[in-house]
Write a protein that binds this DNA or RNA. Structure first.
Lengths: 213, 213
DNA sequence: CCTACAATTATGCAAGCGTATAATTGAGTG
DNA sequence: CACTCAATTATACGCTTGCATAATTGTAGG
């Protein structure tokens, strides 16, 4: 009979389910904005029943927080990984870092939607705000370390200002590329980014990077 | 008697009502994100009944579009006005433009929330997307004109790249300042912006601007 | 093999959403 | 002053939302 067949399922560990729900949440937000991430939609995408979400997350706000935390963690570790395969020379390391931030997969239309979807929560929820703050400052400190390693002499105040400026350039160009991807030709943004960061720091970064084919 | 008193009202022109509804929409989005801009909330803030919204806007999506258009118009004309009171010297004009973009009232926590709230609509609705595109390119062209007026010689391709880069710096710094206003001291960002744009263009813009008290 | 318990599903509810439609009322016109 | 019609309000409907609670079922341990 086709009436009232109860859904069959497998028992899973808490870790697996939580991660599936978080992934589903992020997918939905990037696809259709925060409004699309309803409890029911998340449940369906995670192949689970709405009730189970309440079992693992006290409230939907809780799930949202966890999703943001997870997103930030991913971005942070991704940033670190770029440097693992980078050359040892300070200028080349910085150049590789900048270029990687302005090319796919970092430049990705869906990434901006995801990022924008959380903006409002960042401003309202103190917990989320703190995660945002820590991530942002961590990224900037990493950039500042790369700049400090360059063969120049610069005091702390100048390093700070340069790091803020370079971070601004990267963020801004990243934004432009995500928002209007068809407005730029391939690698144009990365080249502009390298030239600009180089100009801010008073050096040539363009020759440090091989044009990847 | 306190039963069933019908709301008293004044008849208004179509212009007045539409503008009030648009303003209410923008206020609500900036305060509480796109989710807070419900038809009922908009109506209350505009001191009007939900039904009237439907009378002036065929659908809520229509109102959203009109609100975005209005927002972009305001930003565009505000940008133009800065240049009206600016000096005549090209470098000073550019410097004034850059500095103004990185200080209040352009730098405003609520502005970013507003901007972010529309991001998703920009990506999905072709009409809104076109408005966004036109506004963005208009701003960049204005910047490019300011750069082109500088006493240098530069070909078209270089001008384009420089305009993109400068726009990126301004956007990125604007974003940083809006997102974490307490992370910077007063005028720090404007100074960094002037220094960075100057570095990209190979000139000194800092001396072009008086520090406003 | 069965028993017990946590993992999971199913059902239901109150509130809020956008929208449709009908009833009122303010204000200009003769 | 009455008439008229657009501007405005009021009411209602169907749908979705987050959340609570009760009923099941997969699975590990004796």
């Amino acid at each position: 009979m086709m009436t009232g067949e109860r859904k069959s399922y497998r028992r899973e560990g808490q870790e697996v389910r939580r991660e599936a729900m978080i992934a589903a949440t992020l997918d939905l937000i990037s696809e259709g904005g925060i409004a699309a991430a309803t409890v029911r939609a998340i449940a369906e995408k995670a192949d689970v029943t709405p009730g189970l979400i309440r079992h693992y997350f006290k409230t939907k706000e809780d799930l949202t927080r966890a999703a943001y935390q997870s997103l930030m963690d991913k971005m942070t570790t991704a940033n670190g990984r770029v440097l693992d395969t980078a050359p040892a020379a300070p200028a080349a390391r910085l150049a590789a870092f900048v270029a990687a931030s302005l090319r796919p997969p970092v430049v990705d239309p869906s990434a901006m939607g995801l990022w924008a979807g959380f903006i409002h929560q960042v401003q309202q929820d103190p917990l989320i705000r703190e995660v945002h703050r820590a991530t942002y400052l961590g990224y900037r400190d990493l950039l500042q370390d790369l700049i400090a390693a360059l063969p120049r002499q610069a005091d702390a105040a100048r390093l700070r200002a340069e790091a803020i400026a370079c971070n601004g350039v990267i963020d801004g160009l990243w934004l432009e590329a995500c928002a209007l991807p068809e407005a730029f030709v391939k690698d144009e943004l990365a080249e502009i980014g390298l030239r600009s960061v180089g100009a801010i720091l008073g050096m040539d970064l363009l020759t440090e990077v091989e044009t990847k084919t």
